[in-house]
Simulated scan of single mutants.
Amino acid sequence: MNQIERYIFRIALGAFLACLIGLTGTIWVTQALRELDLITAKGQTLLIFLFVTGLSLPTLLVVIAPMALFIAVIYALNKLNGDSELIVMSAAGMRPRAILRPFLTLATMVSFLVGFLTIVVMPASFQELRDVITRVRGDFIANVVKEGQFTELDNGISFHFRERGQNGTLLGLFIRDGREAGKSKVYLADRGNAIEVEGQSYLALEKGSVLQQQKDSRDSSILTFERYTIDLAAFAPPDSDVIYKPRERSTTQLLFPDKTEGYFKLQKGRFRAELHDRLSSWLYPIALAFIAFAALGDPRTTRQGRGVAVAGAVVAVVALRIAGFAATSAAARSAGAALAIYAVPLAAIGLSSLIIFHGPAVRSLTARLAAALRGLGPSRRLARG
């Protein structure tokens, strides 16, 4: 790129980064506030909260990056035109291709980012998010027992604690274990903490006693302790097999699915639609950059308003996204409709290129067609007369 192109690229890149960081940060904070119940209601740590909310960042970037690029191109073109730089460039003989090049370079970089996130990072983040949420929901201490209530489990265990202290500490614990036939154990402890060792969850009791008693017998034994550990695996219900949705599976798994899997047989269309939607995601940033340049790339005087052009570009982007969603939905029902997933952004790029590089010819043809349609009106009225 020459000096002018680097200047344009810096303006567009600065606007893109500002939009991307600002929008992503705002939406991420909004999403994070919705997950505060991980700490307040489910007793999870701040680290788990940040990890779960951080897993949504790849999805946010994929959605926001193309729109941030679109806004950046519009801002840069408006700035160049408002400062009369676009008019000077055009008067100096700089072709639209040269002005488009820095925007296309930025769009290519954004496309690479979106494609990498969609094909590689997003499926892994969705899968990890599913695993974390499954572990959180399976957390016996956080989700099953309630403060001040006696909880009866199907496997013969009764659990109670008086209140929850700081850092998730359970105060005033009572546990009755009746799983063994003919024997019962009662655990009393001042406090208890859930800990994890090598992937296994345990409840560490402090300053308490264990009462053991045989059924139909008056004999019993009491054991006092300073610290006692109970395996929580026996408290929680057995885990069921996790079935990952198409968006939670890697691209390799979508390309080469297990065709004998029952879930794949039921959702074969969704697997196909998800795969092609991922492979076409990188086309949308380029399409949005072309649409913005087609609407605002022509130099205009400051007296000529550009609001209509901006509104037209926004409408075109909305129509593009609606058409893309419709194509993805159709691909889930029909294998032949998968081509439409690629055709939608490619058509937007093609039509925008036609306007950018052959704008006068297109406008002349449009004007002639409009004049011809207006001329048909009187002829029809005379024919009727």
Score class of each variant (00 low, 15 high):
273 A>F: 08
283 L>W: 07
292 A>Q: 14
273 A>W: 11
275 L>D: 10
286 I>R: 06
284 Y>S: 07
308 V>K: 08
288 L>T: 13
299 P>H: 09
276 H>T: 06
273 A>G: 06
292 A>P: 15
278 R>W: 02
291 I>Y: 01
282 W>H: 12
288 L>R: 00
297 G>N: 14
286 I>T: 14
290 F>W: 03
298 D>S: 14
281 S>N: 04
303 R>T: 14
307 G>L: 08
298 D>F: 08
292 A>Y: 05
304 Q>W: 12
296 L>C: 07
310 V>K: 09
273 A>V: 03
307 G>E: 01
287 A>L: 04
288 L>I: 09
279 L>E: 01
305 G>N: 09
301 T>I: 05
313 A>W: 03
308 V>M: 08
308 V>G: 10
274 E>I: 04
296 L>Y: 11
286 I>W: 01
304 Q>R: 15
299 P>A: 13
310 V>I: 13
285 P>D: 02
309 A>P: 08
289 A>E: 10
281 S>A: 13
298 D>K: 13
285 P>V: 02
273 A>Y: 09
304 Q>N: 12
273 A>I: 05
290 F>D: 10
294 A>D: 13
287 A>G: 09
291 I>M: 05
313 A>L: 09
298 D>P: 12
313 A>F: 04
295 A>F: 12
294 A>M: 00
310 V>L: 13
308 V>F: 14
285 P>N: 10
295 A>H: 04
295 A>M: 13
304 Q>G: 13
298 D>E: 15
299 P>G: 13
297 G>Q: 06
293 F>L: 14
280 S>G: 04
305 G>Y: 01
307 G>C: 06
306 R>N: 09
300 R>C: 02
282 W>T: 05
306 R>F: 08
296 L>V: 07
277 D>N: 14
307 G>T: 03
284 Y>R: 10
278 R>T: 12
295 A>D: 14
282 W>R: 09
288 L>A: 10
299 P>K: 15
291 I>V: 12
282 W>G: 00
288 L>S: 07
313 A>D: 00
299 P>R: 15
300 R>I: 13
307 G>S: 07
297 G>T: 10
292 A>R: 02
283 L>C: 01
